Structures are given as C-alpha cells and as structure tokens.
Computed example of a mutant assay.
Amino acid sequence: MTAKDQTAPGSEGQRLDKWLWAARFFKTRPLAVEAINGGKVHVDGQRVKPGRTVRPGTRLTIHKGQLEWEIEVKAVSKQRRPASEAALLFTEDEASRLRRQEIVQQRRAEAPIKRSERGRPTKRDRRRLEELTGR
C-alpha cells in the first residue's frame, strides 16, 4: 500500500462500516451496516453503530455465520484494495484463527459427497437401456 492509501498507526480513524468493507470482511458497505446493526460486530466488547470510529489498536469481534474473528486494527485505508493489502489492515488472535480453521475443517468433513449426475441419458444410453429391458 502506498502512504497515500493507508494512514499511519496513531493517526485519524475511519467509520467502522467503511473499515470492514475496506478490510474485505464484507462485500459491500450495506452488508457491513446490516451486520453491525444486527449485533454481529463488537468493538472492544460492546455493541456499536456503523458510524463508530475505529483507529489502530481497536479490538473487534466479528461474527459471520458460524465463524468468528477476534482482530486488532493495525491501520485504516481510504479505499478498498486487493485482499493481500487488506490483510495488512488487521492482525487476528492466534486462538481465533485456530478455532476458525477447526470449524472449517469440521464443515468440510461433514459435507455431503456430491453424486455425479449427468442429466438426461444420451442416445447411446437409451439404446443400452432398451437392450436390457427388451423393448
């Protein structure tokens, strides 16, 4: 990130909804606002409004579905950047990361195995069926 796009630690803050969008936790700002208003995002352990200012050092807890992130804001960005740069805006607690990885692995293990359905039988398949059934 360039110095123009990212503010240095200890400087000005940014709206929570805009920061969540820039850090790529939510695809759009309205989705971030909806999550904040729904109590899915907490700042320093308290429920907040979308306009709350976050600064470097602020601790966030974000719930999305079954997953939960416990992070600390490292920087704010004036615009949404690629995911590799967005990952530099925060650090995640090690315990939080391990819990998330465990949940993801558990969900993958429980996922149903897909059957390979091919749709309608082809002409060749129909002819083989006719041979078997004697039609």
Rank of each mutant, 00 (worst) to 15 (best):
F26A: 12
D93W: 05
K4R: 08
R55T: 00
L31V: 12
T91P: 00
I62C: 07
R124D: 10
L67P: 00
E70T: 14
R126C: 02
V33Y: 00
E131R: 15
G134P: 10
S11R: 13
A111N: 13
R115N: 10
R97S: 10
H42M: 09
K4T: 05
D93H: 07
Q46D: 02
Q66S: 07
N37H: 13
E92I: 03
L132G: 15
E131Y: 15
H42T: 09
G134K: 08
V33T: 00
P121E: 10
R128E: 10
P82F: 07
V73Q: 01
M1S: 15
R126Q: 04
D17M: 00
R118D: 09
K123R: 04
E94P: 11
E72I: 13
E34Y: 03
P112Y: 15
R99N: 01
I62Y: 08
Q101P: 08
T91L: 01
T2S: 11
R115A: 09
D93S: 09
T133C: 14
S116G: 10
I103L: 12
T133I: 14
K114G: 08
V104P: 05
I71T: 13
K64V: 14
R127V: 11
W21R: 09
E94L: 12
T2C: 10
T61K: 07
G65V: 05
H42I: 02
A35G: 03
R128D: 11
G10R: 04
A95L: 12
F90T: 02
E70K: 15
E92A: 06
Q101C: 09
F26G: 11
I71N: 11
R97W: 02
V73N: 01
V76A: 03
A22D: 13
T28A: 11
P56Y: 02
Q66M: 06
L88C: 12
G57L: 04
N37I: 13
G39F: 03
G38E: 06
N37Q: 13
G13P: 04
T91E: 04
P50W: 06
Q79H: 13
P50S: 08
V41D: 05
V41R: 05
H42S: 05
R55C: 00
K18F: 04
K40G: 00
G38H: 01
S96K: 04
Q14I: 03
W19A: 07
A109Y: 05
D125W: 03
T122P: 00
K49M: 10
I71A: 10
E85H: 12
R99E: 01
L67Q: 01
L67C: 00
R99S: 03
P50C: 07
K114F: 09
R135V: 15
S84T: 15
P112F: 14
E92L: 09
G65H: 08
A83C: 08
Q6H: 13
T122R: 00
E131F: 14
T28N: 05
A23D: 04
R118I: 07
V48Q: 09
L60D: 08
G38P: 02
R100N: 07
F90M: 10
K78G: 14
E131L: 14
P121L: 05
Q79R: 15
K4S: 11
G45A: 11
R124M: 03
A109Q: 10
V76E: 02
H42K: 12
P9E: 07
S96C: 12
P30L: 04
P9Y: 03
G39R: 02
I113F: 06
E72A: 08
L129G: 13
A23Y: 03
A95G: 06
R52K: 12
